[in-house]
Protein backbone atom coordinates (compact mmCIF):
# COMPACT_ATOMS: atom_id res chain seq x y z
CA UNK A 1 0.00 0.00 0.00
CA UNK A 2 2.72 2.36 1.03
CA UNK A 3 4.64 1.56 -2.11
CA UNK A 4 1.67 2.40 -4.27
CA UNK A 5 1.26 5.71 -2.53
CA UNK A 6 4.91 6.60 -3.01
CA UNK A 7 4.70 5.73 -6.68
CA UNK A 8 1.73 8.08 -7.17
CA UNK A 9 3.51 10.92 -5.46
CA UNK A 10 6.69 10.22 -7.37
CA UNK A 11 4.82 10.25 -10.66
CA UNK A 12 3.18 13.56 -9.90
CA UNK A 13 6.50 14.95 -8.77
CA UNK A 14 8.21 13.69 -11.92
CA UNK A 15 5.61 15.33 -14.14
CA UNK A 16 5.92 18.56 -12.20
CA UNK A 17 9.71 18.47 -12.41
CA UNK A 18 9.58 17.76 -16.12
CA UNK A 19 7.26 20.68 -16.61
CA UNK A 20 9.46 22.97 -14.58
CA UNK A 21 12.62 21.91 -16.38
CA UNK A 22 11.14 22.59 -19.78
CA UNK A 23 9.95 25.95 -18.47
CA UNK A 24 13.46 26.66 -17.30
CA UNK A 25 14.93 25.83 -20.66
CA UNK A 26 12.46 28.08 -22.37
CA UNK A 27 13.29 30.94 -20.01
CA UNK A 28 16.98 30.26 -20.43
CA UNK A 29 16.65 30.46 -24.20
CA UNK A 30 14.88 33.79 -23.93
CA UNK A 31 17.51 35.16 -21.59
CA UNK A 32 20.21 33.99 -23.95
CA UNK A 33 18.71 35.69 -26.96
CA UNK A 34 18.05 38.84 -24.94
CA UNK A 35 21.67 38.79 -23.91
CA UNK A 36 22.79 38.46 -27.49
CA UNK A 37 20.69 41.43 -28.56
CA UNK A 38 22.00 43.35 -25.61
CA UNK A 39 25.55 42.50 -26.58
CA UNK A 40 24.93 43.67 -30.13
CA UNK A 41 23.48 46.91 -28.88
CA UNK A 42 26.45 47.60 -26.66
CA UNK A 43 28.75 46.90 -29.59
CA UNK A 44 26.76 49.23 -31.80
CA UNK A 45 26.88 51.95 -29.18
CA UNK A 46 30.61 51.46 -28.89
CA UNK A 47 31.03 51.81 -32.65
CA UNK A 48 28.98 55.01 -32.74
CA UNK A 49 30.90 56.27 -29.74
CA UNK A 50 34.19 55.61 -31.46
CA UNK A 51 33.10 57.35 -34.65
CA UNK A 52 31.99 60.36 -32.65
CA UNK A 53 35.24 60.38 -30.71
CA UNK A 54 37.27 60.27 -33.94
CA UNK A 55 35.19 63.07 -35.35
CA UNK A 56 35.73 65.02 -32.16
CA UNK A 57 39.49 64.58 -32.37
CA UNK A 58 39.70 65.69 -35.98
CA UNK A 59 37.46 68.69 -35.29
CA UNK A 60 39.69 69.60 -32.36
CA UNK A 61 42.77 69.35 -34.57
CA UNK A 62 41.14 71.48 -37.20
CA UNK A 63 40.18 74.00 -34.54
CA UNK A 64 43.76 74.25 -33.31
CA UNK A 65 45.10 74.59 -36.83
CA UNK A 66 42.69 77.37 -37.85
CA UNK A 67 43.14 79.17 -34.54
CA UNK A 68 46.90 79.17 -34.87
CA UNK A 69 46.73 80.57 -38.37
CA UNK A 70 44.19 83.18 -37.34
CA UNK A 71 46.36 84.24 -34.45
CA UNK A 72 49.17 85.02 -36.89
CA UNK A 73 46.92 87.29 -38.93
CA UNK A 74 45.46 88.93 -35.86
CA UNK A 75 48.91 89.70 -34.54
CA UNK A 76 49.78 91.62 -37.67
CA UNK A 77 47.65 94.19 -36.00
CA UNK A 78 50.58 95.06 -33.79
CA UNK A 79 50.38 98.78 -34.64
CA UNK A 80 47.32 98.88 -32.41
CA UNK A 81 47.81 96.61 -29.39
CA UNK A 82 45.16 98.55 -27.53
CA UNK A 83 42.47 97.33 -29.90
CA UNK A 84 43.48 93.70 -29.39
CA UNK A 85 43.62 94.03 -25.62
CA UNK A 86 40.19 95.64 -25.58
CA UNK A 87 38.80 92.90 -27.80
CA UNK A 88 40.24 90.23 -25.48
CA UNK A 89 38.54 91.84 -22.48
CA UNK A 90 35.19 91.82 -24.26
CA UNK A 91 35.70 88.23 -25.29
CA UNK A 92 36.25 87.22 -21.68
CA UNK A 93 32.82 88.66 -20.95
CA UNK A 94 31.01 87.03 -23.85
CA UNK A 95 33.04 83.87 -23.22
CA UNK A 96 34.24 83.38 -26.79
CA UNK A 97 37.88 83.11 -25.71
CA UNK A 98 39.43 80.39 -23.54
CA UNK A 99 41.01 81.80 -20.39
CA UNK A 100 43.49 80.68 -17.78
CA UNK A 101 44.37 81.98 -14.34
CA UNK A 102 44.34 81.35 -10.60
CA UNK A 103 41.12 79.88 -9.33
CA UNK A 104 39.43 76.89 -7.81
CA UNK A 105 38.29 73.48 -8.90
CA UNK A 106 35.26 72.01 -7.21
CA UNK A 107 34.40 68.36 -7.69
CA UNK A 108 30.88 67.34 -6.69
CA UNK A 109 29.78 63.73 -6.76
CA UNK A 110 26.03 63.97 -6.48
CA UNK A 111 24.89 60.36 -6.09
CA UNK A 112 26.20 56.85 -6.59
CA UNK A 113 29.17 55.09 -4.99
CA UNK A 114 30.92 56.87 -2.11
CA UNK A 115 28.04 59.27 -1.56
CA UNK A 116 25.10 59.06 0.84
CA UNK A 117 22.72 60.88 -1.46
CA UNK A 118 19.97 59.41 -3.60
CA UNK A 119 18.56 62.51 -5.28
CA UNK A 120 20.66 63.89 -8.16
CA UNK A 121 21.85 67.48 -8.12
CA UNK A 122 19.07 69.78 -9.34
CA UNK A 123 19.26 72.60 -11.83
CA UNK A 124 18.43 74.96 -8.94
CA UNK A 125 21.49 73.77 -7.06
CA UNK A 126 23.71 74.22 -10.13
CA UNK A 127 22.36 77.73 -10.70
CA UNK A 128 23.00 78.53 -7.07
CA UNK A 129 26.62 77.41 -7.38
CA UNK A 130 27.07 79.64 -10.43
CA UNK A 131 25.42 82.52 -8.61
CA UNK A 132 27.64 82.20 -5.54
CA UNK A 133 30.72 82.08 -7.76
CA UNK A 134 29.61 85.25 -9.50
CA UNK A 135 29.00 86.86 -6.12
CA UNK A 136 32.53 85.86 -5.13
CA UNK A 137 33.81 87.73 -8.17
CA UNK A 138 34.52 84.80 -10.48
CA UNK A 139 35.74 86.09 -13.84
CA UNK A 140 35.05 82.90 -15.77
CA UNK A 141 33.17 79.71 -14.87
CA UNK A 142 32.71 76.31 -16.46
CA UNK A 143 30.72 73.21 -15.54
CA UNK A 144 31.84 69.91 -17.06
CA UNK A 145 33.56 71.71 -19.90
CA UNK A 146 30.72 74.10 -20.68
CA UNK A 147 31.61 77.78 -20.28
CA UNK A 148 28.96 79.63 -18.31
CA UNK A 149 28.05 82.89 -20.03
CA UNK A 150 25.17 85.28 -19.51
CA UNK A 151 22.86 83.44 -21.87
CA UNK A 152 23.67 79.98 -20.54
CA UNK A 153 20.53 78.18 -19.46
CA UNK A 154 20.67 75.24 -17.09
CA UNK A 155 17.59 73.12 -17.64
CA UNK A 156 16.43 69.56 -17.23
CA UNK A 157 15.46 67.53 -20.25
CA UNK A 158 13.13 64.59 -19.72
CA UNK A 159 13.36 63.33 -16.17
CA UNK A 160 17.07 63.18 -15.50
CA UNK A 161 19.33 64.83 -18.05
CA UNK A 162 20.70 68.27 -17.23
CA UNK A 163 21.51 70.46 -20.20
CA UNK A 164 23.99 73.32 -19.98
CA UNK A 165 24.30 75.36 -23.19
CA UNK A 166 21.99 72.63 -24.61
CA UNK A 167 24.68 70.00 -23.99
CA UNK A 168 23.83 67.10 -21.66
CA UNK A 169 26.24 66.99 -18.72
CA UNK A 170 24.67 64.54 -16.27
CA UNK A 171 24.80 60.75 -16.12
CA UNK A 172 22.27 58.21 -15.01
CA UNK A 173 23.51 56.54 -11.84
CA UNK A 174 25.45 59.50 -10.46
CA UNK A 175 27.27 62.46 -11.98
CA UNK A 176 30.64 63.90 -11.14
CA UNK A 177 30.56 67.63 -11.71
CA UNK A 178 33.77 69.50 -12.30
CA UNK A 179 33.23 73.18 -11.68
CA UNK A 180 36.07 75.55 -12.53
CA UNK A 181 36.29 79.24 -11.74
CA UNK A 182 38.95 81.93 -12.17
CA UNK A 183 39.20 84.78 -9.69
CA UNK A 184 40.55 85.69 -6.27
CA UNK A 185 41.25 82.28 -4.80
CA UNK A 186 40.61 83.23 -1.16
CA UNK A 187 37.16 84.61 -1.99
CA UNK A 188 36.15 81.76 -4.28
CA UNK A 189 37.26 79.17 -1.74
CA UNK A 190 35.61 80.94 1.16
CA UNK A 191 32.24 81.48 -0.56
CA UNK A 192 32.08 77.97 -1.98
CA UNK A 193 33.04 76.34 1.30
CA UNK A 194 30.60 78.26 3.45
CA UNK A 195 27.68 78.84 1.12
CA UNK A 196 27.67 75.73 -1.05
CA UNK A 197 29.77 72.84 0.25
CA UNK A 198 28.15 72.72 3.69
CA UNK A 199 24.67 72.22 2.22
CA UNK A 200 25.82 69.73 -0.38
CA UNK A 201 27.62 67.64 2.22
CA UNK A 202 24.57 67.72 4.44
CA UNK A 203 22.69 66.03 1.61
CA UNK A 204 25.34 63.31 1.59
CA UNK A 205 27.09 64.47 -1.57
CA UNK A 206 30.85 64.30 -1.93
CA UNK A 207 32.54 67.68 -2.35
CA UNK A 208 36.18 68.57 -2.92
CA UNK A 209 37.46 72.10 -3.43
CA UNK A 210 41.05 72.85 -4.36
CA UNK A 211 43.05 75.95 -5.27
CA UNK A 212 44.42 75.56 -8.74
CA UNK A 213 45.52 77.37 -11.84
CA UNK A 214 42.68 76.48 -14.15
CA UNK A 215 42.02 76.75 -17.86
CA UNK A 216 38.42 77.37 -18.85
CA UNK A 217 37.26 76.57 -22.40
CA UNK A 218 35.55 79.07 -24.63
CA UNK A 219 31.78 79.29 -25.16
CA UNK A 220 31.01 77.33 -28.30
CA UNK A 221 27.48 78.57 -28.82
CA UNK A 222 26.70 81.53 -30.99
CA UNK A 223 25.33 84.99 -30.40
CA UNK A 224 22.56 85.95 -32.74
CA UNK A 225 20.73 89.24 -32.58
CA UNK A 226 17.71 88.77 -34.74
CA UNK A 227 15.26 90.86 -32.76
CA UNK A 228 17.44 93.30 -30.85
CA UNK A 229 19.05 96.30 -32.44
CA UNK A 230 21.42 98.89 -31.13
CA UNK A 231 19.94 101.95 -29.46
CA UNK A 232 21.62 104.94 -31.06
CA UNK A 233 22.41 107.66 -28.62
CA UNK A 234 20.99 110.87 -29.95
Amino acid sequence: MINKHVITVATIAAVAIGFLISLQFQAQKEVDSAEKIQQQRVEQTDTVMKTLQDENNSLQEEYNRISAELERYRNQNSENPYLKARLDQLKITDGTIAVTGPGVKMIVKDTGPDTDAVIPLSTDELREIVNVLRLAGAEAISINGQRIVASTSIVISGTATILVNSVPISRIGGTTYEILAIGKQDDLLDYLTNMIAIDLKQFGRKVEITRETVTIPSFKGSYTFEYASEVKKG
Partner: peptide
Amino acid sequence: YSYKYAQPVKEG
Protein backbone atom coordinates in the same frame (compact mmCIF):
# COMPACT_ATOMS: atom_id res chain seq x y z
CA TYR B 1 33.92 94.41 -16.07
CA SER B 2 37.63 94.73 -15.43
CA TYR B 3 39.36 91.39 -15.26
CA LYS B 4 42.32 90.95 -12.94
CA TYR B 5 42.92 87.22 -12.90
CA ALA B 6 41.76 85.70 -16.18
CA GLN B 7 44.22 85.69 -19.07
CA PRO B 8 43.33 84.76 -22.64
CA VAL B 9 44.78 81.43 -23.68
CA LYS B 10 47.05 81.82 -26.67
CA GLU B 11 46.11 79.36 -29.38
CA GLY B 12 48.51 77.22 -31.34
